[in-house]
Design a protein around this nucleic acid. Structure first.
Lengths: 177, 177
DNA sequence: GTCTATACGATGATAGAC
DNA sequence: GTCTATCATCGTATAGAC
């Protein structure tokens, strides 16, 4: 999608319908045969990604794997998507605040659900004594945040599939030798 | 600064001069007695923060501390600032891409300088065998990224000074027990 | 589904009086 | 340094012909 690319580079608010139209080589008004509003584009991108993540964590949560294996799988999944579709992920990460009031509300609920499922897994790890007994919210935020640079990489540099598990091990095990 | 607060909440592009004016209770045109353009406000915020970070890492780099101590100090400093002035830090982190061509160029050079100094410290740690031998750019990005959630915290929750060293230890040592 | 034409409010910024 | 008045441009979106 050309719109995700523009939203990623310029941000949602700084991207006009005129630019969007030029990117797909039609007149601005013609866009409205495909969409109802500019916000609808943003909404589609954000909720597509949100659903992807939520479905995965819901699936992982009910597997028989250990908490550590589950967290590894989630991080690997996130990294994979950040590489495969870096534009949509950037929009999902950085532009959701421009959703309209109604969509924003739904979006935040969805994030909260995701957080709860993740924190449940962390708590299991703490109980089993394989994860440090630190505030689970800190662990959650640190884990998710630590991979939010990959989608900015210009390409295949630090963030190619060969490095995926290396990155996950770094995050889980720390940088200390 | 009221402008940093609006830029944080709505983003630079979505914030108008009229809103900025209302926030300080004057007419929009009166703003131009204090600034030359909207972009100048953004520029001031971004470069103030950039200078703060650069000065600190330059100072740390020439200390006698071990690489790990240096990295700890840098992360603690970043966390401290993220708590003290979360609005400016959010603008610095997320809105710099709206700088004009000339300022953007300077800004990116400044970031590159910062990255080089940080990576040098990481490399020292790797040579001394106290830091894992992973691509230093991955380590750099992961470390810096992992604290980029603190400035979003509503307040004093997970991110109060008592937790600072806990967070740093988590990042350096990983979540594994 | 695409076009031309257009509505019309919002945008950043300026001129000039006080 | 603040105001009122204003400018030119761009913003999203619609109407209606083809």
């Amino acid at each position: 999608m050309a719109s995700a690319d523009l939203f990623k580079r310029q941000g949602y608010a700084a991207t006009s319908m005129r630019q969007l139209a030029k990117a797909v080589d039609i007149e601005p008004s013609s866009l409205y045969s495909h969409i109802q509003s500019k916000e609808e584009i943003l909404q589609t991108i954000c909720f597509e990604q949100a659903e992807k993540f939520t479905k995965f964590i819901e699936w992982i949560a009910e597997q028989d794997d250990s908490p550590i294996e589950k967290i590894k799988a989630i991080l690997l999944h996130q990294i994979q998507i950040a590489c495969d579709d870096s534009t949509s992920i950037t929009v999902f990460n950085d532009e959701w605040k421009h959703l309209n009031e109604e969509h924003l509300k739904t979006f935040l609920i969805s994030r909260k659900t995701y957080e709860s499922l993740f924190i449940e897994i962390i708590n299991q790890g703490v109980q089993q004594n394989v994860i440090k007994d630190v505030d689970p919210k800190i662990v959650f935020n640190t884990l998710l945040s630590s991979i939010k640079w990959i989608h900015f990489q210009s390409n295949k540099n630090a963030a190619n599939p060969n490095n995926f598990s290396q990155i996950v091990d770094l995050i889980l095990g720390g940088i200390l030798n």
